[in-house]
Design a protein around this nucleic acid. Structure first.
Length: 419
RNA sequence: GGAGAGGUGGCCGAGCCAGGUUGAAGGCGCUUCCCUGCUAAGGAAGUAACUGUCGUAAGGCGGUUCGUGGGUUCAAAUCCCACCCUCUCCGCCA
């Protein structure tokens, strides 16, 4: 949720909201309603003060004065109720409008639609495709079985098999170790959460149709560990001296992928279930931009050490999503498609999410909302897709990235004999 | 799944069954000061959060909050309803 006071007082904040698609008209109407709300609030509070005083007086009054005083207090109460109804109507209007306003973009975010992104850096080349694309190679190596996956669970489900499983676990363990070494606390979170957690994490109502629901138990399967990680300090007051609090979660992720029919149908690039190592940071407002750069640095280090060619983009305002004030995407070159595809992304939500989560920081500057950030460390399945193309040799063998070898006990994997 | 107990301020813990100077006793912790020749003991004062408004500020005056949301009442931590959570015993279980 946005900061109405900042919207009122801070021109930069307001410009950021406009960059994200909020019209000046909408903002002005919201601020006018909010002004009315605050005025009504003052009035209602005055009336309530009178009514409270009258009630307190009854407790102290002589018994024979009570009836008269009770009657008078009753009248006061009725007047309060009338004005409260008006206030509530205005407040509801303000809240609804405020919830619809996205988190303003940071001034460093390029303004425009999806294509307006800014390329920050390009690492490595754009190699030509290997003999087999990731989908065919996964089948050839006996690493993926989408056919049986579909028979068991439907399309976009696959079995992961053989060395691919060892590689997956190696990726998880390697990234986990790296992050623990950087002071992150490792977490295996619940993957089923309540509706209010989905709302507070900012995924409902907007992304509700992307989420699997267990109706009988009123629980929802998370699409990312970000959701339960955001819940860790919900409703808490954090001591500024303990920040930043850095967490790294490992979980399976579940996505309905509604509206992607016919898109990325080959292999395991886009599936309903995958595993992911996700970073999440609770930061002091003064630290959050430095923490955002840290997340990017870690993401880049992971790609560098795996030897993947990639570029980093500063996502344009129109493509940020409601919660992010700024977002970097790392996109790895996918040779078979001849284009860069997203592998990781990291966002600074500033105080947008914490306001809804009710997480505050208490420090020298008093009490303010925390800043939250999140970033992908390793989307495991998709990482395997990229590795299957970049580590694949002309003879069909697979060269395991050096850094993963200690974690899976493999260095060169040769394809099984053809049937 | 069955039976019971309980959720109060940074923490512990009274208050609830008789609704009214209780935003909440007491203790711990913390802050400041006094005493003390010294990391002890003692004494005094202060110490919830959020929010509106006025003020340059210190602060003043209000509102809301005793798990959450409703209800009854002039008045609710206290009464009623629903939900959430925690604990104990039994059952089940990787």
């Amino acid at each position: 949720m946005i900061d109405l006071r900042a919207l009122r007082d801070d021109p930069t904040y307001r410009e950021g909201a406009v960059a994200k698609g909020a019209t000046a008209d909408t903002l002005d109407r919201l601020l006018a309603d909010d002004a009315e709300r605050r005025q009504l609030l003052a009035e209602v509070e005055r009336l309530r003060a009178d009514a409270n005083a009258a009630s307190k007086d009854i407790g102290r009054a002589d018994p024979h004065e009570r009836d008269a005083k009770i009657a008078a207090a009753g009248e006061l109460k009725a007047r309060v109720g009338d004005r409260e109804a008006v206030l509530e109507a205005v407040s509801t209007r303000v809240d609804e409008a405020a919830l619809a306003i996205p988190n303003p973009a940071h001034p460093s975010v390029p303004t425009g639609t999806e294509e307006a992104f800014e390329v920050i850096d390009v690492v490595g080349g754009q190699p030509s495709p290997p003999p087999l694309d990731h989908a065919d190679y996964g089948d050839r190596m006996g690493w993926t079985d989408a056919e049986r996956g579909a028979a068991v669970s439907g399309s976009r489900f696959a079995y992961l098999r053989a060395e691919a499983v060892l590689l997956e676990l190696a990726l998880v363990q390697w990234t986990m170790q790296k992050l623990v070494g950087r002071g992150f606390t490792p977490i295996v979170p619940p993957v089923l959460v309540r509706e209010d957690m989905m709302v507070d994490a900012g995924f409902f109502p907007t992304d509700r149709n992307q989420v699997y629901e267990l109706e009988k138990d009123e629980l929802f399967l998370v699409g990312t560990a970000e959701v339960p990680l955001a819940g860790i300090h919900r409703g808490e007051r954090l001591d500024a001296t303990t920040l930043p609090l850095r967490y790294v979660g490992f979980s399976s992720c579940f996505r309905r992928e509604a509206g992607t029919y016919g898109k990325d149908t080959r292999g395991i690039f886009r599936v309903h279930q995958f595993d992911k190592v996700e970073m999440f940071i609770w930061a002091d407002p003064e630290q959050s931009w430095a923490e955002h750069e840290l997340l990017l640095e870690i993401e880049r280090e992971i790609l560098d050490q795996l030897g993947l060619p990639y570029r980093v983009i500063n996502v344009a305002s129109g493509d940020l999503g409601a919660a992010a004030a700024k977002k970097y995407d790392c996109e790895v070159w996918l040779p078979s498609e001849g284009q860069y595809r997203e592998i990781t992304s990291c966002s600074n939500y500033t105080d947008f999410s914490a306001r809804r989560l009710g997480t505050r920081v208490k420090g020298d500057r008093g009490s303010e909302f925390a800043h939250t950030l999140n970033g992908t460390a390793c989307a495991v399945g998709r990482m395997l897709v990229f590795l299957m193309e970049h580590a694949q040799q002309d003879d069909g063998s697979f060269v395991v990235p050096e850094v993963l070898r200690p974690y899976c006990g493999l260095d060169l994997i040769v394809p099984p004999a053809a049937e």
